[in-house]
Amino acid sequence: MRIDIISVLPELLESPLGHSIMKRAQNKGLLEVHVHHLRQWAVNEYGQVDDYQYGGGAGMVMMCEPLANAIDSLSKDRRYDEIIYMTPDGQRFEQKIANRLSLKENLLIICGHYKGIDQRIRDHYVTMEISIGDYVLSGGELAAAVVVDAVGRLLPGVLNDETSALTDSFQDDLLAPPVYTRPADFRGWKVPDILLSGDLKKVDEWRYEEALKRTIERRPDMQQE
């Protein structure tokens, strides 16, 4: 999979995409992430990529021309399955969306800034708009990193144990059950006996029951959908 990201602050993506599982995925050649500085396509020698909004009001808007030129330039080399704009008013990002995106070959992500991007880019280029929550960040870079991480870890071969991702929260419309590790008794706090029994069928039943209980308690909305 290849993911291209358009940003005015690419340095914000260096750390989240350059360590741990994302680094491993790229080193294995399973994931390519390329961050492109929007100012490469600036409208003048001063690197301008934003301007005042028509109609007045506070805040700058990312201009049509640099973004259109960036998308056109990058699209010459490949066809993007989705052109994604990270925006607070987009579709809420969920595991099912990550699963679907992990099956794609080429994604392009636009990181907004200021008051956002010119609506004409959204109307004529963007195929998918994603929000990671009902709040506003300084820019789309951190949100883009969340999407790349959630999608990248699902690619075959990225995780040491590929079945791990299948038991994550939300994969089966349930939150993950409680987990324990050694020691079995810590300060008198004991691991449930069932997990020490060696009976895999009963362990699976316990985990399902605990996952269901946790979901009903913490996210009853997931059971109503």
Score class of each variant (00 low, 15 high):
residue 2 R to N: 14
residue 5 I to C: 06
residue 6 I to D: 06
residue 14 E to I: 12
residue 15 S to G: 00
residue 16 P to L: 03
residue 16 P to S: 00
residue 17 L to S: 06
residue 21 I to F: 07
residue 21 I to G: 03
residue 21 I to D: 00
residue 28 K to C: 00
residue 30 L to D: 02
residue 32 E to G: 10
residue 35 V to G: 06
residue 35 V to A: 01
residue 36 H to S: 07
residue 39 R to M: 06
residue 40 Q to T: 11
residue 42 A to E: 05
residue 47 G to Q: 06
residue 51 D to A: 07
residue 55 G to H: 02
residue 56 G to C: 03
residue 60 M to W: 01
residue 63 M to H: 04
residue 64 C to D: 00
residue 66 P to W: 04
residue 67 L to Y: 06
residue 68 A to L: 12
residue 70 A to I: 13
residue 71 I to M: 05
residue 75 S to T: 11
residue 75 S to R: 08
residue 76 K to E: 13
residue 79 R to C: 07
residue 84 I to A: 08
residue 85 Y to S: 03
residue 87 T to E: 01
residue 89 D to Y: 12
residue 89 D to Q: 14
residue 91 Q to T: 15
residue 91 Q to K: 15
residue 92 R to W: 02
residue 93 F to W: 12
residue 93 F to R: 01
residue 93 F to H: 09
residue 93 F to E: 00
residue 96 K to A: 13
residue 97 I to Y: 08
residue 97 I to C: 11
residue 99 N to K: 15
residue 100 R to D: 14
residue 100 R to E: 14
residue 101 L to G: 02
residue 104 K to W: 06
residue 109 I to A: 05
residue 109 I to H: 11
residue 110 I to C: 09
residue 110 I to G: 01
residue 112 G to Y: 02
residue 116 G to D: 01
residue 117 I to W: 07
residue 120 R to S: 03
residue 123 D to R: 14
residue 124 H to M: 08
residue 124 H to S: 12
residue 128 M to G: 05
residue 129 E to R: 13
residue 133 G to Q: 03
residue 136 V to G: 06
residue 139 G to F: 10
residue 140 G to A: 06
residue 141 E to W: 04
residue 143 A to M: 09
residue 144 A to W: 10
residue 147 V to Q: 04
residue 148 V to C: 10
residue 148 V to F: 12
residue 150 A to P: 14
residue 150 A to L: 09
residue 150 A to M: 09
residue 150 A to T: 08
residue 152 G to P: 10
residue 153 R to G: 01
residue 153 R to Q: 04
residue 158 V to M: 09
residue 165 A to H: 07
residue 168 D to F: 10
residue 169 S to A: 12
residue 169 S to D: 08
residue 170 F to T: 02
residue 173 D to F: 14
residue 177 P to N: 00
residue 178 P to D: 00
residue 180 Y to S: 10
residue 183 P to I: 09
residue 183 P to Y: 12
residue 183 P to S: 09
residue 185 D to T: 12
residue 186 F to Y: 15
residue 187 R to P: 00
residue 188 G to E: 04
residue 190 K to N: 13
residue 194 I to V: 15
residue 194 I to T: 03
residue 195 L to Y: 15
residue 197 S to F: 13
residue 199 D to T: 05
residue 199 D to N: 15
residue 210 E to L: 04
residue 211 A to G: 05
residue 215 T to H: 03
residue 217 E to D: 09
residue 217 E to K: 14
residue 220 P to D: 02
residue 220 P to W: 06
residue 222 M to L: 15
residue 223 Q to N: 06
